[in-house]
């Protein structure tokens, strides 16, 4: 890692400041392209359990990546990746993906399930908005048109004791939800929202 920074520094110094700007952008661009194989082109996923990440807020993205890097947040996969990146690279990645548009992947669901989901998410409105697409602050992710299976798995993480999910309020809210069926319905409700 040390050597890598040193060498990069050498190359950059040799080629001048303008090159540095280009190379730094190109480098982040290159790192970001490697995420496409799991999160989709421009961070729009096509896999039901894999989240779209393009268009999430910079602050949220940076925050979760750092939590993973420092082992503070449960993960099946991402934690093992982000330990291999520098903080500057993570900041660059957060900036890169937040600059992309949020593209909801609207998933249809049974009308009864949607009604059930709407009811189950009433308490969530203050922070996520009525459709999950109007977050009240920069640390709250977009939920509208996110993949339902992914949302459901995330909610189960917040609900399960002993699974490290640092956000206390979100954990409390998820735990206050009723049956697991409410969780699935809530996930499907958000996934069905275009806006």
């Amino acid at each position: 890692m040390k050597r890598y920074t040193l060498l990069a520094g050498f190359v950059l110094a040799a080629l001048g400041a303008a090159w540095a700007a280009h190379a730094a952008d190109a480098k982040i661009e290159a790192l970001a392209r490697s995420c496409n194989s799991c999160h989709g082109l421009n961070g729009v996923s096509v896999g039901a359990s894999m989240p779209s990440i393009g268009g999430l807020s910079e602050s949220y993205l940076y925050n979760v990546m750092l939590q993973w890097k420092h082992g503070e947040r449960y993960s099946a996969t991402m934690g093992r990746h982000f330990k291999g990146y520098s903080d500057e690279e993570l900041a660059g990645l957060a900036k890169h993906f937040s600059a992309l548009p949020w593209v909801p992947v609207v998933q249809s669901a049974d009308a009864r399930v949607l009604a059930h989901g709407k009811e189950a998410t009433e308490r969530c409105e203050t922070c996520h908005g009525a459709t999950g697409g109007q977050p009240d602050d920069k640390d709250t992710p977009m939920l509208n048109g996110q993949w339902a299976k992914y949302l459901e798995l995330e909610l189960m993480k917040y609900r399960t004791e002993g699974v490290d999910m640092p956000h206390k309020k979100m954990r409390k809210n998820a735990q206050k939800m009723g049956e697991d069926a409410d969780v699935a319905a809530a996930a499907k409700y958000y996934a069905a929202q275009p806006k």
């Binding site: 496409n36 082109l41 096509v46 039901a48 894999m50 291999g84 798995l153």
Partner: peptide, 28 residues
């Protein structure tokens, strides 16, 4: 890079993620 590697146990959640890995990989 240090601290990557294999997990010691299998799980259902990894099955879910693995399935979607294929979908995104084919699309990419």
């Amino acid at each position: 890079q240090p601290e990557g590697g294999a997990n010691k146990t299998h799980s259902e959640i990894e099955f879910e993620y693995g399935r979607s890995w294929h979908e995104n990989m084919w699309a990419d």
